[in-house]
Simulated assay, not measured.
Amino acid sequence: MLTVTSKDVTKIAYDKVGQGPSLILVTGAFSYRRFPGQVQLVNLLSEHFTIYNYDRRGRGDSGDTQSYTIECEMEDLQAMIEEAGGSA
C-alpha cells in the first residue's frame, strides 16, 4: 500500500500495479480498492496499463475529514493525477 497526501493533508491510500500508460481507477460510492470486482478489473487492465487503484476518502485505508465536500474528492483525484505523472 502506498499513500499520497491531498491538498487538505488527508492521506489517500492506493496500490500501483502493472506497466504501461497510467490509468487511475475511481471506485463507486460503496466500494474500495480491494473490493473483489475491483481487484479483478485491476488484474485484467494491468497487462496493458500502470494502474493506480485508490481508496476514496473515508473508505478502505484512506483518511477522511469532518466535513465532506465534492471539492475535496476532486483534490484527492488531482493528487492521484500528479502521482501518476501529471495528466489525465
Rank of each mutant, 00 (worst) to 15 (best):
I81K: 01
G63M: 01
R57F: 02
S46R: 06
L41H: 00
E75Y: 06
Q66H: 08
M74N: 06
I51E: 02
A88R: 08
Q78D: 11
M74Q: 07
D64T: 14
G58Q: 05
I81G: 03
D76H: 01
I81Y: 03
E73I: 04
G60Q: 13
E82F: 03
I51H: 02
Q40H: 13
E82Q: 13
T69N: 02
Y52R: 02
A79F: 00
A88M: 13
D76A: 00
D64L: 11
G86E: 01
C72N: 15
S46L: 00
G60H: 15
D64F: 12
T65P: 04
D55G: 12
L41A: 10
Q40G: 09
T65M: 10
I81E: 02
E82N: 14
M74Y: 11
I81M: 09
G63P: 00
A79T: 02
C72W: 04
N53E: 07
I70R: 07
I51F: 04
Y52A: 09
E83G: 04
G60N: 10
H48Q: 10
G63H: 06
G37A: 15
E73A: 04
A79P: 01
Y68F: 15
R57Y: 10
N43F: 03
D76I: 01
L41P: 00
Q78T: 06
T65R: 11
I51K: 05
I70P: 00
I70V: 13
P36F: 09
V42C: 05
G60L: 14
N53K: 06
G60K: 06
G37V: 07
I81P: 01
E47G: 08
D61Q: 13
E75S: 06
D61M: 12
L41F: 03
Q78W: 00
E75W: 03
D61P: 06
G63E: 05
D76M: 03
G63Q: 10
L77E: 03
E71T: 14
G86I: 04
D61H: 14
H48P: 00
D76W: 02
Y52W: 05
P36A: 11
A84E: 02
L45P: 00
G86W: 08
D76S: 02
G85P: 08
S67K: 13
S67Q: 12
I70N: 09
S87P: 01
R56I: 11
V42L: 05
A84C: 06
A88I: 05
Q38M: 15
D64C: 05
N53A: 13
P36Y: 08
V39Y: 03
H48I: 00
F35M: 15
G85K: 08
S67W: 10
F49T: 01
A79E: 04
I51L: 05
S46D: 03
D64M: 13
I51D: 03
N43A: 12
E47L: 08
N53Y: 07
G63A: 07
S67A: 14
R34F: 15
A84W: 02
S62F: 05
E82K: 12
Y68I: 09
V42D: 06
E83F: 01
Y52L: 08
F35G: 12
N53M: 10
T50W: 02
T50M: 04
S87N: 10
L44K: 11
